[in-house]
């Protein structure tokens, strides 16, 4: 058990911030996303983040500079992105954690990198 989780963490198959739904798909868990954001731990392996910080997202998220998945280690992000066709990895030194407003239809918080480093790479 790690950080309140009653299961083992595997950065790729059982990442910290995700749980499998009934169909076996990985779904983000809101509470753990917030925990990763504030405790500054990796959303995949749950260890302290490094520098740079990595985010995974699709073209829309990259275009908006607003990511739903929590911050990750670069290697964890690359491993996760390799599993999803439309995900790319971006790196940053810092990020803002933005909570949803009452007006937002999508009530998930987002992460906005504030010091992007280099180009996004294909996962």
């Amino acid at each position: 058990m790690i950080r309140g989780l009653s299961r083992d963490v595997d950065a790729v198959d059982a990442p910290f911030a995700w749980e499998r739904d009934d169909a076996g798909d990985l779904q983000l868990v809101a509470r753990r996303v917030t925990q990763c954001a504030l405790s500054r731990i990796c959303g995949a392996c749950a260890e302290s983040l490094g520098r740079p910080v990595a985010f995974v997202g699709d073209d829309l998220e990259i275009g908006r500079n607003a990511f739903h998945a929590p911050p990750l280690h670069l290697t964890c992000a690359a491993d996760l992105a390799a599993r999803v066709d439309h995900w790319r990895v971006v790196t940053t030194s810092g990020f803002e954690f933005v909570r949803a407003t009452a007006e937002d239809e999508d009530r998930r918080p987002v992460f906005s990198p504030n010091s992007l480093l280099g180009e996004a790479s294909r996962g």
Binding site: R3, G4, L5, S6, P15, W18, R20, G24, D25, L26, Q27, L28, V29, A30, R31, Q35, H68, A69, L80, R83, V84, W87, D106, R107, R108
Partner: peptide
């Protein structure tokens, strides 16, 4: 951490699939 309720318990359809 395990007992702490999510203020929005599940993200459901909003969630990103990463399977």
């Amino acid at each position: 951490d395990a007992e702490r309720p999510s203020r929005r318990a599940e993200l459901g359809g909003w969630s990103r699939k990463a399977s």
